[in-house]
Amino acid sequence: MSVAPTLEVETALWDRRPLVIGMDEVGRGALAGPVSVGAFALTRCDVVPEGLRDSKAMTARARERTAPIVREWGIAAVGHASAAEIDAVGIMAALAIAGRRALEELHAAGVDVVSSALLLDGSHDWLSPRLRRPLAITLRPKADRDCGSVAGAACVAKVERDALMVAHDAEHPGYGWASNKGYAAAVHMDAIRTLGPTRLHRRTWLKSDGAVSASAAA
């Protein structure tokens, strides 16, 4: 059974900054569709919405049920970087582009991003290289599991990206995106070999025979 995230890390950050912005990425390992980054701004509080967990430990129905509750809890934004952008600059730079777009969306919604503490899932700062100015970033491995703001960011981003892939499935039938969301499921791999890649595929991640490149996620 998955453990509910807490606000222990956020509380320490709130002692220094008025807002915490949790951030996490989804779709990094997919072969088709965008890579997406959720950014979730949260003021000091002491309760995490019931049912919020690491998005990977939640069912699709649970994520869809919880995402609107998360959006009422704080201010959420999702940035995307397209497959073409991933091919052009690589996955790490594309992550940073998507993250910057999410922060720009928060800024447009009235969030003071510059004075906020950013809580980034993982041990590598992929965000800073594409920022126009340095921000206060805290790295936290497993933050999507342990930290409420990051779990909220991941849940909202996952639901939004999944909805995009379901819509793309209707435009490009045969790849099974409604169920596999662009990841390397067997039906998806078979379709790449028989139908070829679409404009939504990360072509630099595919070999000429439709197999996945060994360096795709490097």
Rank of each mutant, 00 (worst) to 15 (best):
A60V: 11
N180R: 00
S179L: 05
G27I: 00
D24E: 06
D24L: 11
L7Y: 04
E104W: 01
G196L: 13
G174I: 06
A109K: 15
E25R: 08
R145N: 04
A32Q: 01
M1V: 13
A67I: 12
P173H: 03
A62H: 11
A77F: 07
A41I: 02
A88N: 09
D87E: 11
V70W: 05
I97M: 12
A136Q: 13
A62Y: 03
R53K: 08
G38H: 09
T43M: 03
G148W: 14
S179V: 11
P5I: 15
H168K: 03
L7C: 06
M58A: 08
E160T: 13
R203Y: 01
F40H: 15
E25D: 05
M165P: 04
L200H: 14
I91D: 06
K181R: 13
M92Q: 13
R193Y: 09
L106A: 07
G90H: 11
L103S: 08
C155T: 15
L106K: 10
A39Y: 03
V47I: 14
S36L: 02
V20C: 08
D125F: 02
C155A: 08
T138D: 10
L164D: 10
T11Q: 15
A81N: 05
M92V: 13
H168V: 00
V70E: 09
D125W: 03
A217I: 06
P129T: 00
R61N: 04
M1E: 10
R61D: 09
S115N: 11
R17E: 03
R203I: 06
I137W: 05
P173S: 06
P5W: 15
D144Q: 10
S115I: 01
R145D: 09
A217P: 00
Y175E: 01
L52K: 03
A4E: 07
H124R: 13
D24F: 10
G148E: 08
P5K: 14
G51S: 10
G148V: 13
V114H: 00
G90W: 07
Y175I: 02
F40M: 15
G152E: 08
A67G: 11
A62R: 14
A163Q: 09
I86G: 05
W14Q: 05
K181E: 00
A39E: 06
V150Q: 09
V114G: 00
D24S: 13
A167S: 12
M189I: 14
A96E: 06
Y183T: 03
A136R: 10
A93L: 10
L7R: 04
I192W: 10
V156D: 01
Y183D: 04
V35G: 05
L119M: 10
A153V: 05
V3W: 02
V187T: 12
A154R: 12
R130F: 01
D15E: 15
G110H: 04
G99A: 02
H188N: 09
M1N: 07
W73Q: 07
G182S: 06
R133I: 03
V159G: 02
R63K: 12
R17W: 15
R132K: 13
L103F: 04
L103Q: 06
V9C: 10
A211Y: 04
N180H: 09
M189G: 01
L131R: 10
W14G: 05
I75L: 02
G22Y: 04
V114P: 00
D146C: 10
G22A: 09
D169A: 14
L200C: 02
A96C: 08
A154G: 14
R53F: 13
D125M: 05
